[in-house]
Design a protein around this nucleic acid. Structure first.
Lengths: 311, 311
DNA sequence: TCACAGTATGAAAGATATTTTCGGCTCGGC
DNA sequence: GCCGAGCCGAAAATATCTTTCATACTGTGA
């Protein structure tokens, strides 16, 4: 008999019968007056530190509050749960919500004495922000034009120095993988001497956050003057580099600070632009890109060891 | 005896011992490849419907997935929890977070005929997700250890090939800027010949998404055997590369597809880890890092043209 | 193809946590 | 002071979780 009653409670009720975690604190306040002393102690502990209580077994919570298991279970029942087990789950949910609610507070700058966990959170948050901003600010018309130029290019040269040089190489690696002829230049002299070879039908891409890097502007200018289609990926749409760019792709300019140089966040936005270019081109040239990609995987397969399980 | 052990697990351990709910989805993806079939079924069910699974007992989840209780417990262990009970609590937390207006996830893949605006949105979303997952899954203990090793290193070698090679260079560039002696190797032969020079007090870092890239594992092994402190940045915490790593930093494994190679999303997570390492080291060596950073800006200033407004 | 080694898996036993029962206890009213 | 109502916790009963162990399976080398 008692068994049957319990089963109804545990499994038979409507799906949303249990109080939502968020309502727990309110329920505690509402019901507190009608509770006995011991139960109030339990309810108080639960409302006070949901996360802590969620980590406790029924026995642990009983000890913490100086009561018994039976009282804890009675309290859980009063709060609307079938038993302590379900209260505990709700508590875990509440704790998680509170924790995630605290997250947006990380907009502050990174300090020298920040614990490493904060550093991780802040960096991740900032880069997410940069991605969102860049995506929102990207001009799809310009992007489409750049993709079209790349897809039909005889050859593509990409210029970038410093951190942007790595982005340039990233783009080049990707384009090569889908069968396009691309080359990244970080040596300004070689970049210029190569740029003079370009002509109509070729594409030149300059990547510079500030838009003022002479070593990158110069080859783009040369390419521009030789009739190549030129693209600038920069955080400053009004900077010198755009003078010689047929298409300008703007990346977001995130806040920078002492411990977080501009190069760090700009890179994230630049890479997003590069990925967009790559996928755009891959879409346009799918017939040839897909087999080329597959072939490049194939070619690398033997350079990977078989994954072994633990010792 | 068993009692004592358990209590340590439940209450006494370090605060961040258990994986946070937010990290769960990432962990499932990261560890799924190393799971057995049955465990994958359980992991999938858990990732698929956290709320639903949180409502189930170990027996219920075993029945739902057509496996046994033992398998469910094993899966929970693999995901980093002491047992199913704790996994269930995390699940409840995750469910609560999702319910409280978290991202519903644009799970669709990039298609060949997606308009460019969709491509931008999907790529940005995916990379944001990768950042969040990587940040959530990053082990701060390992990170702290790696930072400490780097900050006190006589010299640092970083190994990476392909896309990871660019990440290696990014890290190297950053470390050099704050006055550390660092070098990136993408030539496997040179990497090994340099690795034999390393000894205790030096640091070697291998960056490989799959964790199976022989060209990167080999130099790390050599460095490891010569007594250097070794760090692996990989998406597979159980892969061969970790055999020779004193500290393992795990990046998130995002879904990949034909138009979005693994290298693309892995790069985002790797760069976040690199940034965390850099900032961590910069914090520890602030006295010398700050002036070094300032000096590096200074040195580059003359290579930037004055920003001119329009024509 | 077959034997074999190493794993993966689930059934059931064992341990732990939760729920129920039941009797002692306190407190206020008469 | 006596009585009754209801609070409370110890311990039994039950549900749940964990471990163990035997079996089935999978891939491997002869």
């Amino acid at each position: 008999m008692t068994n049957e009653v319990k089963e109804i409670f545990a499994g038979g009720g409507s799906p949303a019968a249990l109080p939502a975690p968020a309502a727990l604190a309110a329920k505690v306040r509402t019901l507190a007056p009608s509770m006995t002393r011991s139960m109030q102690r339990v309810a108080e502990a639960v409302a006070d530190d949901p996360a802590g209580c969620a980590a406790l077994t029924v026995t642990g919570l009983a000890e913490l509050t100086g009561t018994s298991e039976a009282t804890v279970v009675r309290t859980a029942r009063l709060l609307g749960y079938p038993g302590y087990r379900d209260l505990r789950l709700a508590l875990a949910g509440l704790a998680a919500q509170q924790q995630s609610g605290r997250a947006p507070a990380i907009t502050t700058d990174i300090a020298v004495d920040d614990p490493i966990a904060d550093v991780v959170a802040k960096l991740a948050y900032d880069e997410q922000q940069t991605l969102a901003d860049t995506a929102a600010g990207l001009d799809t018309v310009q992007l489409t034009a750049a993709v079209a130029a790349l897809a039909g290019a005889r050859r593509t040269d990409v210029y970038g120095v410093g951190a942007s040089g790595l982005v340039a190489q990233d783009l080049t690696q990707k384009l090569l993988r889908i069968g396009l002829l691309a080359h990244a230049h970080s040596d300004p002299h070689l970049a210029v001497t190569n740029a003079v070879q370009l002509r109509s039908g070729d594409v030149a891409i300059a990547i510079t956050h500030s838009g003022t890097t002479g070593d990158v502007i110069e080859p783009l200018r040369v390419a521009f003057e030789h009739g190549a289609t030129t693209v600038a990926v920069t955080g400053r749409p009004d900077s010198p580099v755009t003078q010689y760019a047929d298409h300008v792709l703007t990346t977001s300019t995130a806040r920078e600070s002492e411990l977080r140089p501009a190069a760090m966040s700009s890179r994230t936005g630049q890479l997003l632009v590069v990925d967009c270019l790559f996928v755009g081109v891959a879409q346009r040239t799918y017939e040839s890109a897909a087999p080329a990609l597959a072939a490049s995987y194939e070619a690398l397969a033997h350079r990977h060891q078989a994954a072994r399980k633990g010792p």
